[in-house]
Design a binder for these strands. Sequence first.
DNA 1: CCCATAAATGGGAGGTTTGTCAATTTTAAA
DNA 2: TTTAAAATTGACAAACCTCCCATTTATGGG
Lengths: 229, 229
Amino acid sequence: MLATGLFSNEARNLGKSARTRARLMDAAVELFARDGFKAASVNEIAKLAEMANGTFYVHFRDKREIVQAVTLGIAQELARQLDEAMVDIDDAVERVSMATRRFLDLALTSPDWGRAFFRAAWAFRDLRENMLSFLRADLERGRDQGAFTVEIDDVLIDTFASMIMGALFGRLAGDFGPEAGARVAELQLRMLGVPPQRAHAVANRQLPELRLTIAALPKQLKPDPVPSR
Amino acid sequence: MLATGLFSNEARNLGKSARTRARLMDAAVELFARDGFKAASVNEIAKLAEMANGTFYVHFRDKREIVQAVTLGIAQELARQLDEAMVDIDDAVERVSMATRRFLDLALTSPDWGRAFFRAAWAFRDLRENMLSFLRADLERGRDQGAFTVEIDDVLIDTFASMIMGALFGRLAGDFGPEAGARVAELQLRMLGVPPQRAHAVANRQLPELRLTIAALPKQLKPDPVPSR
DNA sequence: CCCATAAATGGGAGGTTTGTCAATTTTAAA
DNA sequence: TTTAAAATTGACAAACCTCCCATTTATGGG
């Protein structure tokens, strides 16, 4: 039994039902990332999670339900970690740069999650809007602080987000290295009206080490005492 | 028989085989736009094209083959029209703004094509790189003309393209109106280092009426539907 | 350790999908 | 008009899908 995914890790101290559910969700993340939400099949999810297909329907009413659970889980986890990483930053220029760079670093920590998020962001409007509302807050903060000279409207916010999504895709595809985050952040700041020199300086400032939290611990967990099968 | 799609129109003077093939491709565009390449079924494509499923296999070996034909066809058509619209523009600032705005206008002329392009651009690397090479040429032209102060590298080009894709999505989803093209172009020019005032002026200049060419025909009577999924 | 209950299993009904093929209809050249 | 080639049809096998459910297996409070 593998149980190395992030959902499984999060549920490792919960009851058996929650752990099984989490294993299904981890398998789903992997398949959603590869094939998309429509093309991934319940059969394949159960097979990848190493359980009978009937088990799936004990934990989820149907495919729609696991899609919802997975996308919500990914979005919440990303938002939580991002929020935590920026909790004591006031300067909007710093926040905006940090959001982009941290988001990319986080998503790349678990590429399957990153890929699933990429798909979900285009497919589910409410998830997208939830994420954009955080962005809007920081952009308006920057305007109020006098740092951004551009008008803040829906197109701007959406465009800003698209730049992040494009970078996420490039990183996941292996087209770009880790430096892409800083580069995109710099371009974003230029777009917003931050003087080029400051944009370059802020976007390339070294970020403090990311403090990992519960769910983000990787592999190497104690195997289940009961041998499988 | 409908035969109202762009491929059908392009093939309307060719032999019967080519016309049937084109009808299948038009149906495929519609389904690819709605469901994605993986989730669309051959059965449904044939049904939408009002022919027996066996006919599909006379014209295409399998689904992979029609996906390739459709994506290639869309990309070529868009590139051809864009190229024609900009043939006598020298100033890179104008070209870059025009490429974004014209592209969005074109894609919105046939929303199904736009949606299919949106999906294809993320799914097929060679198509994406083909499009990006046009972009690179104009960006380098602007640098050589001294209009852009930003360094031109892969991340910049990709980010620039992502801004267009984000706007395309927003337009197709009905989140933005026709003014979004000019707004995004303005943001792009700011990012590139064009002074804000000039960026605003160029991006909002009225474009000459687009001269339509062969394939880019007719009405689009379907009411604007929901985006993807 | 007992045993009520929760969890998991695996087979199957009923539907859809892919790709094939013999039979039929349409096309167009002579 | 004739006729051979080209195009189309629709039934079908085999694979695969979703969801159900009668059973078996595991868990944990008393």
